[in-house]
């Protein structure tokens, strides 16, 4: 190998320009998109999962569960129509957890160090990572909606646009939750526990599959649990937005939870807090 001098060392300077922040953001989003494209099976499974629920589960339960007219719907609807927003949120829930899985993998493989030794503020780097994961989940949701359209899931045309902010906010909340969880997982093997203790309880104890008034008839305490579940509010935020309406309570809950989970994740990835306790094996 031969080396020729090509540059002098740059003078030290402080702070970062807006352009540097934007470059960093686009770079992280670009890398996440590349990784997603390289994992076609991840894309397929992200679509197959909600479609199985839509095509099989919903068809089977159509006659069992009656849906009365509840906001935001203004008429009787098919069960498939009811669970579509829940399945959209489910895509984002799984994607959020998948992103956290990839963070655990990156940490084990050492890739995470590349990100964390960047000179830009660590909180900003984690936010970029979160935004990148959310962008991928939003793409998955729109792919699902495109297929669901052939299954008579036809929200108003404007709904495809008005649901976008809701998807971004819900994606950020679920991604931040995944990031917070990933900070506490030392090994990839431990991630299976997340499936059992986070994803399934969050999904089933929510309004994704059945309206809360139905749940309340069977078990008031379970209905209370569902009400307290942030995932319920992500589903309702999406449901209302898909029909051009805004559920203020859900917006407040999802926004608040996003902030709390994000702050928690930043603190957990702060070297003076989370990393230090992990010891020599718990690399960054």
């Amino acid at each position: 190998m031969t080396v020729t001098p090509v540059h002098a060392p740059p003078p030290a300077r402080s702070g970062f320009t807006a352009g540097e922040y934007i470059t960093c953001l686009t770079g992280i989003v670009w890398r996440e998109a590349l990784r997603f494209l390289h994992q076609r099976e991840r894309f397929v499974s992200a679509l197959v999962r909600p479609l199985v629920w839509l095509f099989i589960f919903a068809a089977g339960f159509r006659q069992v569960l009656g849906i009365s007219i509840i906001p935001p719907y203004e008429t009787y609807i098919l069960y498939e129509v009811y669970i579509a927003p829940g399945l959209m949120a489910m895509i984002q829930l799984f994607n959020g957890m998948q992103s956290s899985l990839s963070m655990v993998y990156d940490r084990e493989m050492g890739n995470m160090r590349t990100l964390l030794v960047s000179p830009l503020p660590r909180g900003y780097l984690l936010f970029c990572k979160l935004l990148a994961g959310t962008a991928v989940s939003v793409l998955q949701v729109y792919a699902f909606l495109a297929i669901a359209w052939f299954w008579d899931i036809t929200p108003p045309p404007m709904g495809y646009l008005t649901v976008l902010p809701a998807l971004i906010l819900a994606g950020l909340m679920l991604g931040a939750l995944g990031m917070l969880i990933s900070s506490g997982i030392k090994q990839l093997e431990n991630f299976a526990g997340v499936m059992n203790f986070v994803i399934f309880p969050m999904f089933f104890a929510s309004s994704a599959l059945y309206p809360l008034w139905h749940v309340e008839e069977g078990s008031p305490w379970l209905a209370f649990l569902c009400e307290a579940n942030p995932f319920t509010h992500a589903v309702e935020l999406i449901r209302f937005a898909l029909y051009g309406k805004l559920n203020w309570v859900s917006l407040a809950v999802v926004g608040g939870c996003t902030a709390v989970f994000m702050i928690g994740a930043i603190l957990a990835y702060d070297p003076s807090r989370g990393f230090v306790r992990r010891g020599p094996g718990g690399e960054a």
């Binding site: 540097e20 470059t23 992280i28 670009w30 890398r31 990784r35 390289h38 590349t114 830009l120 780097l125």
Partner: peptide, 16 residues
């Protein structure tokens, strides 16, 4: 899973 160039470009982005 990324190419050589992609790895370098990613690192560059992290430095703005």
């Amino acid at each position: 899973d990324l190419s050589l160039t992609q790895n370098l470009l990613y690192h560059a982005a992290l430095h703005g």
